[in-house]
Design a binder for these strands. Structure first.
Lengths: 169, 169
DNA sequence: TTTTTAGGTTGCGAATCAGTACCTACCTAA
DNA sequence: TTAGGTAGGTACTGATTCGCAACCTAAAAA
């Protein structure tokens, strides 16, 4: 594995490049989708995804390395290996669903069948949205960046502070 | 542009492969992040991202093609071009923030500075989460797939239906 | 009128992707 | 106990894409 490629700029500064470093390669998200859907074995991913063996092999190694998947030899059949999502992997679900919903809204057009629902009430889930501290839905207009220092300083006060409007994400 | 590569399987069936087809390539998300942060010009992206000119050029063409960015010649300076997010592009924000938050939680560790806040109350936004129809937060345990047919059939009834637990995302 | 700037394109080597043919351990049926 | 199939990989090959640097053109700026 070459790995001479410079890591996406500013790994430390922002979580996005870091996330992309872990799951940004081609097929990674598709493998995770398959995992979320209960696939556990190499050959299952292979036939379900239509990915090449060597690529799948490499991706699985990577996803295990970064701690998104866990690799366990099957107790029943010593040929088999069980790949399953760790907590870290499961925590990608909101991002995956958000991306999927975007694809449905803007690309495929249809909210594909079957529909993702909550198990208790058996009704479709809401669109993933951005929420303020009080759970108010907000869009990009209602967002800004605040410095950690300023944050603590002006809590529970109403003095005006300079607002950097999305200046350094 | 070769484009002989088979599109990620089942484009029509699910929004995720469709979304990845649009923004799944290397650098696409970083360009969008920069766009969200108010960058508009080729040379700005170039220096801010540290991406190669030809790659940036290709990505911008692609993102414009799929309708995520809009390309407008600047009225002030006829050399300049303004790239800005369309509504379709802006609608990727929840997915981007979810991914970024994941990266902060699991990779960088720190909720990087400055902090993304709501403009009204100037407090950090909540983590992106999955919500049921009644806005209840749910995790992967509380999710299931329901067929469109079944969905309409059992609305406002409490008969038991077979639950496919994440069987075909 | 020369120089700079903005936004590209082109060419080329390096890295990655993808398809296929192996290979090895293991299970199963005869 | 052995032949044959299965599970999970590697190794080899060619196609595609990435990334760097050089170049190019139109339009400001000096």
């Amino acid at each position: 594995m070459g790995k001479l490629r410079e890591p996406l700029r500013d790994i430390a500064e922002c979580g996005l490049p870091a996330a992309l470093e872990a799951v940004g390669e081609r097929w990674s998200f598709m493998i995770l989708r398959a995992s979320f859907n209960g696939l556990h074995h190499f050959e299952e991913f292979l036939t379900e995804l239509g990915i090449a063996r060597n690529i799948l092999s490499g991706r699985l190694v990577k996803l295990v390395e970064v701690g998104i998947l866990q690799r366990t030899p099957s107790p029943d059949d010593r040929r088999k290996v069980i790949y399953q999502l760790t907590d870290k992997g499961l925590d990608l679900l909101p991002a995956m669903i958000a991306l999927r919903q975007w694809g449905e809204r803007w690309e495929t057009g249809v909210p594909s069948n079957p529909v993702l629902c909550d198990e208790r009430d058996r009704r479709p889930i809401n669109p993933i949205s951005i929420r303020a501290h009080d759970d108010r839905e907000i869009d990009h207009h209602g967002l800004c960046w605040i410095d950690e220092g300023e944050l603590n300083a002006d809590r529970d006060q109403d003095n005006e502070q300079p607002v950097k409007n999305l200046g350094a994400m």
